[in-house]
Structures are given as C-alpha cells and as structure tokens.
Design a protein around this nucleic acid. Structure first.
Ligand SMILES: Nc1ccn([C@H]2C[C@H](O)[C@@H](COP(=O)(O)OP(=O)(O)OP(=O)(O)O)O2)c(=O)n1
Ligand SMILES: [Mg+2]
Ligand SMILES: [Mg+2]
Length: 931
DNA sequence: ACGGATACGACA
DNA sequence: TTGTCGTAT
C-alpha cells in the first residue's frame, strides 16, 4: 500500500462532516481512574520517575489542575514540584526496566470501541484521538428533520463552541435568521464561490454534527469514565485544529465563513504537519506568520518554493480545504518497542546487549501474542533499529527483515543476527571477547505488515472460492447469452448471480464447520492440486456422514449467516450437497421467501455447476482467474462467517463491528491481488440479513474490475455504501418554497438529553470511494490512484535512483569513507549531482503517458502481467530491487551523512538526532533533479 | 549529555 | 518494497 492516503473529490470540500475526538490529559485520566484518590488533585504522569534520586523523570501528561499551576509536559519531576509542590507525580509502570504504556493503549482502545459504535468510518490517529467521518449520519438526521421526525437537541450543545462566536447560541440564532431571510439580503459571495446557500448548508451540517459529537463524548464518559474534547469541521485538519481550542471536556465547531478571519491570526505552526521545521521554513521563506498569509501566494509559487505536493497542499489548507479521507483504521499498523541507552549507559558488552534484546523481544512478543489473539493477525515483517556511537558520533540504522514466526527465541535470534550482520566489526579486536566495537545507544524492534492468520482450512476455502468464482464467470456467460448482446450484466442478473453464488458457497462452508482441523491433511500453503483437495473434501464428507457431530451449530444459537441468504428449496437435487447440508437443513425450514421460477431455473443451473466438479473444464475464452486473487476475496467472506458463527452470544451490533474490522484487516492483505479477466465481474450489494430479518445496511463486498486501468488486473474489495439523499435545506434561489415554516430545523425545548438510542443506524459507511489520480511528485505524471499503479510508477523512480553506475560509485565512496571517516560534506553534494545526471542518461527512455496500450506480457522476473509499454519500467524495478538486496546483504559499509538539523530554538522537540548512515546522501531538495 | 516511547507517512 | 527523515502524541 504505497499511496495509502486517499482524497475526496474537490467538490466535497464542504460536504463532509469530520469529528476529531481527543481525550483530555489522557494518561492522567487513566491514572486517576485507576487511583480515584488522585481526582481533584494536580496530577502529572512521568516516565522514569526517579525524582527522589536525580530529579529525573520526564513528564508526558499533565492534568488541567496541574496545568493551571504551570506544570507542563517535558518538565522534569522536580521542576513540576517547584511549580506545584502538591503535584501528584504518577509514574508510568515500569516493566522489564523500561516504561510500559500498554495500560494507556488499552484505555485508548476502550474509547475507540465506544466511538466505533457511532461509525466504523473511524481513523485512530493516536493512542488518544480518532477522526470520524459522520457525514452520512448527519445527512440522515437532516433528512429526518426535513421529514419532521427529527430535532436538534440543544442539550447536546451545552459545551459546544463555535469559532468566531461568543456563545453557541449566537451561532444557532444566526443560522435561524439566515434561513428566515431566505437568502434575499445576502448576496454575499465569497471568493471561493461561497454563497449564502453553501454557508447555510454548511452551518447546518456542522451543527447537527456537533450534536452527534456531543453524543459521542457523553457516551464515552458514560462507558469509560473518561472525558474528552472534540472538533467538528468539514475536514480532518480543521477538526483537529479546532478541537484543541476549547479543552477540557468541550467541543468546537468551525463555521465555514469564519475561516478567513480565523486564519488571519492563526500561527502557521498550529496546523498539523506545520508544527516543525517545515512550518518554520515556510514562515521564514515567505516572511509570514499566520496561516492566512499564505493566501497571497499562487499555487504555482508555493509549488515552486516547496514541492509540488506540499505547494498544493498549502494552497488549499490556507483556504480551509483539506480533502484527505478519513481512512477507516482501527488497528495499528505496527507494534514496537525501543529503548535508549544514552551517555555512559550505552551498551558496550555483548552480554548486556543480549540482555536488552531479550527484554525488548519479550515485550514485543507479549504484545504480539495479545494482538494475534485479539485481532487475528500476524506480522510478516520486523524492523530492527539501533544507534551506534562511531567516532563520538551517533549513527542510526534500521534494517527490515521478514519474519515467519514470532516467538521469543526466533525474534531474539533475528535481532541478534541483524545486529551482528550490520555492525562491522561487531566485536572489539584484540580485546577480551564480548566487548562490542561500537557502543549501542539505542535499540528497537517493531513488527508490521500484518496479515490475517491463515487458517488450516484455507485450502478448503480455496477450493470453494475457486468454484464460486468459476461459477460466477460461468453464470456471467450464461446470463449474457440469455439476455441478448448486452455488454454488461443487468442488475437483475447480477443479483441472481450473487445470491446463488454466495448461498451455495456458504452451504458448502457448513461442511468446514464439521471438520476437525487435524482431518485436513494438506498443510496450508502447500501446493496440493485441486484434485487432491477434492478428494480430501469428499473423504471428509463421508466421515461426516458416519459420525454426524453435534458440535455444528449445536448450541442452537442464532447463526449470523444462517438466514443470511434465502435458501433454495431444492436441495434434493444434490447428493453430495444434501449430505453435506443435511445437518443444516433445519435452517432452511423456517425460511419463507420463495424464489421466482425464473430465478429457480437459473439457480439450478448454478447448482448443477457446483455439484459437478468443473476443475478441469476449460472454457477457452472464459475469464481466467488467478488463484490468489479469488482465494483471498472469498476467503474474506469465509472468515466473516466463521468468526461470527463461532461466537457465543449473538449481538448484532457487535457483529457488525466485528465484520467491519475483519474487512478492514483483510483489506490490508489484498495488496497483491492480481487477476486477469475478460469480463466485468461484479458482486455488488450483497445484502446481509440478521435473524430478525433486520437489514444490515451498506455492507457490500465488491469484486470489480477497474475498467479505467490499463492493467486489467486489479481486484478491489471495498466497502461501499449507498447514499442517496440530498441536502434537505437545498434552497433554490429561484424557488419560493423555502420559508420559515418549511424550515426543517426545529429546536427542541426542554428535552431530555439524547441517549444513544436516538442514533438509529450506527452502521454508516464512507462516501463512495471516488476514483482519483495522484500526481507524481517527481515527474508530474498523473497516476491512477491505485496502489499498484502508483507503486509501479514509484518503482520506476526507485530504479532511477539505483543504477549500476551509482553502485560502483558509492562503493568507491564507501572505501574512501571507511579509510577516512571524517570527510567532505560539501564535496558530497557536487558528487551527487553528477551521479544523478549519470543515472539519467543510464535510464534514458521515454516515459509515455500511462494511457492506452492494452497489450500485456508476463514479466520474466515475477510473472506479473505488465503492459508492454511498461515492461522497461517494470524491469527497472526488478533491477533496482536486486541492487538494493545485494547492497543490503553484502557487508557494504554505509556512507556517513552529516547531520544538519538545528535546534531552531522553537520550544518544540529539538533533540538533534544522530547522524544517519545512508547509501547515498541526497540533497534535501533534489526531487526536481530527477525528471 | 537521562528529553522517552511509540506510531505514521513522505520521500528517494 | 528498503531505509531515512520529519512529525506527531
Ligand atoms: N510527547 C508526547 C505527547 C503525548 N504523549 C501521551 C500522553 C498524553 O496523555 C497522550 C495524549 O496526548 P495529547 O497530545 O492528546 O495530550 P493530552 O491528552 O495529555 O492532553 P490534552 O488534553 O491537551 O489532549 O499521549 C506522550 O507520551 N508524549
Ligand atoms: Mg489528548
Ligand atoms: Mg491526542
């Protein structure tokens, strides 16, 4: 997942409602909850709380009472005591000689669980904050309000503030006034085409959004006991910005039309992303201080002065526009731990090193084990970080390595070996064994690139998946034949296809539930043939017949998928299926719905297909699928089923969330899907039904070819939604229908605080994913915003960076460096330029637009189908990879790159990091050099 | 040079 | 699909 961020369409710039919820002095609250005696007292949380010894211990959280007395983050324990003698210094629990922050992670998860109750379109941004896109819920409520059965409850707005207004009441009043005026007076046209109608709409959305934020916060308080603040705006950056304006236990909305005046005095550094060096550079270079000042510059100029990407971003941000999506993410992408060994604490002996490796690995294994249990996933990559002191200078390195097992022993070994391999010489020469040549001042290990756990039954799934997919393609063909010459499936046919396909698939899955894991003879990942698998399957069927185990669905608890699809009534057709499904028959009896004859026929055809093993039928011109793709896609469905069916008690709401998380997790595994297909295969709008026949909204699993891609080899599985309604306050200037009476907003008087039940649907989805393009920062080309396409393009640039010439060159450079460690910072730069230009010539080749050319050819290296006109580019990718791997594996010494960061006296974090070893030092602004 | 631990995304 | 850097909590 290269370009992980995605963006909404610009026409959505004021359409979304985004909430940022941030816990108030979070760690303090956690500690106060744990030890209620602390409540009401000034509290600060410290790490390494040795204040009695050396005055040490850094403060990382301060509650609001202590803040009032001047205690701040980054102070030491004793400094805090000076400011506030009564301050309670609570220390982060120490485990294994290092602080352990898991209690805060757990607490953060509690909060996220509450928030996820409102929408799964939630992005956890840190341990104590999350973004939520509540556009749909807002829309829904506004629709209800329009219909007359919804109201805005002012009780939910008691702690709400609106930027630019003294009281939230003023804001509400103004909304009402503007409505009654019906836009006649104000021909106010703002620069961005901000007309009064847009503003009214925006205000309304934000106001409704604020009530939802109020519900969220009170629910959090109710469930967890923690207090938090929230920001409500049209995008993430603004929501975050505004959240911090009123704390604690408050929320703030940012009305659209307040933005310009607000930005006029807003320091640039307040914007997320501009709080560091970049923000300083901006102010320095442009001689500005406030965000609004950026508005004077053209986009082109900003791009020229900074980068294309950043320039555009700044151009938009200073106008209050931020199109970045709230990307659903509940899980963290990596889990890691680390420790510094500053000063004379540096590790100098091998035994000490082993000790700390053990400590760190113990911790990460512990956390990973918990993670695998909770989240059903496993990391496939580990990153080892370490900092050496070389010639008095700190030198940091990281190495990544793929891992297959995550036990203590192997991770310790991995870590040890990585260190040994990358530190040369590792031991001091001519010294007693066990003394390290370079003191180690920092150690870290983290795990990432998670994949969901492979189940033993995966091979069965594979078979089902294949059959199902094949069935789908067959059906596609059949349907098409019967429905004239249409190029695409009719909705009707699609529906038929989906229902039957999935139904049959899940029927067969019932078999799986009867199988013991041990019965499955072929190991996961082993490449047994389809024939083998079929054999195994049949064998199991027999076994099952003889000893019908009662464990299958025996608990009588409702199974989420039991009534998922309407069952067909003609199971009798199928011998094997019948056997297989006999146990499940009871689930069919209470099903009422009957299929139409027409569908019935088609269903039979489908079933027939399933009954017979079509593994070897070759349909010369039929869509050809590629194993992994379908397996993964349908495994997703399977996993949903097995997870849900395995649950003790059935809670629909919980299941929905589980489902969503599964989809999120699975989605992270889908990066490598490659499918070749001639036709559009769409499985849309699979509707999921609960036992109570209540519809779960908006879950759809879509397997669709992206017809816009040249590479017709992308399968995407995404969650999509159906949004329909349009803004109820649509005030047509030409129309007279809008008057105060019709106005949908009613202020409810004297109402009880709303409870969460008032939120009807807790299961909203994100707006339809828009197709979009991303512009390559390096060459400016527009790339389809698709992981594969983008990555492929990036790979091209990677290749550019690593030519043979360059490898030779820096090998030479390397030797020089090794021989004379302290050298030539300025000379480096000159050298670099020539390097780059040599690369350019080396790779001189035309870069066409990515459009056109349908022909593809399998890559010799990886077998992937590549557009012929992209083969060269693709080959470069492999080339680069090889070089990179070679460089990594060989004991090539790195070039030491001088640090160049200055404290800047910014009051922010300003530790000057260690200098870093890099393969090639690059000028910081070299992007434009490569073209 | 006890101002730490942790996580994420951009870039080359 | 690696490693460094910046930024953030
Ligand atoms: N440099 C930092 C910043 C924060 N945190 C931890 C402690 C905080 O409690 C928690 C959340 O960070 P916030 O920035 O949200 O700060 P608080 O929640 O403590 O206070 P606020 O009420 O201002 O959000 O993350 C940390 O360990 N190190
Ligand atoms: Mg906070
Ligand atoms: Mg925070």
């Amino acid at each position: 997942m290269s370009s992980s961020r995605s963006f909404v369409n610009p026409n959505q710039k004021y359409e979304r409602v985004v909430v940022l919820v941030d816990m108030d002095c979070f760690f303090c609250q956690v500690e106060e909850k744990l030890n209620p005696e602390l409540k009401g007292k000034p509290v600060a949380v410290v790490q390494y709380n040795n204040w009695n010894v050396s005055g040490g211990g850094g403060i990382i959280a301060v509650n609001y009472i202590a803040r009032d007395m001047g205690v701040t983050r980054h102070m030491r324990g004793d400094e805090a005591r000076e400011k506030c003698p009564e301050v309670e210094l609570v220390k982060v629990p120490n485990h294994r000689e290092k602080p352990d922050t898991s209690r805060y992670r757990d607490a953060g998860k509690e909060v996220a669980d509450v928030l996820q109750t409102f929408t799964t379109l939630l992005e956890r941004a840190s341990v104590d904050e999350a973004y939520l896109d509540i556009t749909e819920e807002v829309q829904k409520r506004m629709d209800n309000i329009t219909k007359g059965d919804g109201q805005v409850d002012p009780n939910l707005l008691v702690n709400t503030f609106a930027v630019g207004y003294e009281h939230i009441g003023d804001f509400i009043r103004e909304i009402l006034t503007s409505i009654s005026n019906n836009g006649e007076d104000e021909a106010e046209s703002y620069e961005d085409g901000l007309d009064s109608s847009t503003i009214r709409k925006s205000n309304f959305k934000l106001l409704v959004g604020a009530t939802i934020a109020g519900e969220m916060r009170s629910k959090i308080k109710e469930v967890t006991g923690y207090e938090c603040s929230a920001g409500v705006a049209h995008n993430k950056v603004l929501a975050k910005l505004v959240c911090g304006m009123n704390k604690p236990n408050k929320q703030t909305v940012l009305p659209l039309k307040e933005i310009p005046s607000f930005f006029k005095t807003l320091p640039v550094g307040k914007i997320k992303g501009l709080g560091g060096k970049f923000g300083e550079d901006i102010c320095e270079m442009l001689k500005i201080k406030h965000l609004g000042d950026l508005g004077k510059f053209s986009e082109e100029e900003l791009q020229r002065r900074f980068t294309e990407r950043n320039g555009s971003w700044l151009y938009q941000i200073c106008r209050g526009i931020d199109l970045e999506c709230v990307t659903p993410r509940y899980y963290s992408k990596s889990i890691g731990c680390c420790k510094r060994f500053p000063g004379r604490n540096a590790i100098t002996g091998y035994n000490t090193l082993k000790h700390w490796i053990t400590e760190l690995v113990t911790e990460i294994v512990e956390r990973l084990e918990k993670d695998v249990e909770e989240n059903n996933r496993q990391p496939k990559q580990s990153v080892i970080s370490f900092t050496l002191e070389i010639n008095g200078e700190d030198v940091a390195q990281t190495r990544s390595i793929s891992i297959t097992s995550i036990d203590q022993e192997s991770l310790e070994q991995v870590m040890t070996e990585v260190l040994k391999k990358n530190i040369d010489p590792f031991f001091k020469k001519n010294e007693a064994a066990g003394l390290l040549n370079f003191p180690i001042k920092f150690l870290g290990i983290s795990a990432g690139k998670f994949v969901s756990i492979e189940k033993k039954t995966v091979t069965l799934e594979t078979m089902f998946a294949k059959q199902a997919l094949k069935a789908s393609t067959t059906a596609v063909k059949d349907v098409k034949v019967s429905s004239a010459q249409e190029n695409t499936l009719t909705q009707e046919n699609k529906k038929i296809l989906k229902e039957n396909l999935l139904e049959k698939m899940f029927e067969k899955q019932a078999l799986k539930a009867t199988l013991k894991d041990e019965d499955i003879s072929f190991a996961p990942g082993c490449s047994s043939t389809q024939e083998n698998k079929s054999l195994v399957l049949e064998k199991q069927s027999e076994d099952f017949k003889e000893k019908p185990t009662e464990e299958v669905n025996s608990k009588g608890k409702p199974s989420f998928f039991k009534n998922f699809f309407i069952k067909s009534k003609n199971d009798e057709k199928v011998d094997e299926s019948k056997t297989i499904n006999s146990e499940e028959n009871h689930t069919t009896e209470n099903d009422s719905k009957i299929k139409e004859d027409d569908e019935e026929t088609k269903l039979k055809a489908l079933e027939d297909w399933f009954i017979n093993d079509h593994e070897d039928d070759e349909e010369p011109n039929l869509p050809v699928y590629k194993n992994e793709a379908e397996r993964k896609a349908l495994e997703k469905l399977y996993e949903i089923q097995s997870t849900i069916d395995g649950n003790e008690s059935f809670d629909l709401e919980k299941e929905k969330i589980t489902l969503k998380r599964l989809l999120e997790l699975k989605a992270t595994n889908e990066n490598d899907i490659s499918v070749k297909s001639n036709k559009n295969i769409e499985l849309n709008d699979i509707s999921v039904k609960s036992d109570e026949n209540s519809e779960i909204n908006d879950i759809s699993i879509e397997i669709v070819e992206n017809s816009e891609l040249k590479n017709k080899n992308d399968i995407s599985v995404k969650i999509e939604e159906n949004s329909e309604t349009e803004f109820p306050l649509k005030i047509d200037e030409n129309s007279e229908t809008t008057n105060n009476e019709n106005f949908p907003l009613k202020i409810k008087e004297n109402s009880e605080p709303k409870t969460n039940e008032n939120i009807k649907t807790l299961f909203e989805e994100n707006p339809k994913t828009q197709k979009s393009f991303v512009k390559c920062d390096q060459c400016g080309k527009n790339i389809v915003d698709n992981d594969k396409a983008v990555q492929s393009h990036k790979d091209y640039h990677t290749a550019l960076n690593v030519s043979r010439d360059q490898r030779e060159e820096f090998r030479q450079e390397l030797k020089n460096k090794i021989l004379s460690p302290k050298q030539t910072p300025p000379a480096k730069k000159a050298k670099l330029d020539t390097t780059i230009s040599s690369i350019k010539t080396f790779f001189a080749k035309p870069l066409d637009s990515e459009e056109s050319s349908v022909d593809q050819q399998p890559c010799d290296e990886c077998g992937r189908l590549i557009d012929v006109d992209k083969l060269a580019e693709h080959a470069d990718y492999h080339f680069a990879r090889k070089i990179q791997i070679e460089m990594n594996s060989n004991d090539i010494k790195m070039v030491s790159k001088n640090k160049k960061l200055q404290p800047k006296g910014k009051g922010k974090d300003f530790k000057s990091g260690p200098s870093v070893l890099t393969f090639f030092s690059q000028p910081s602004t070299s992007k434009s050099t490569i073209h």
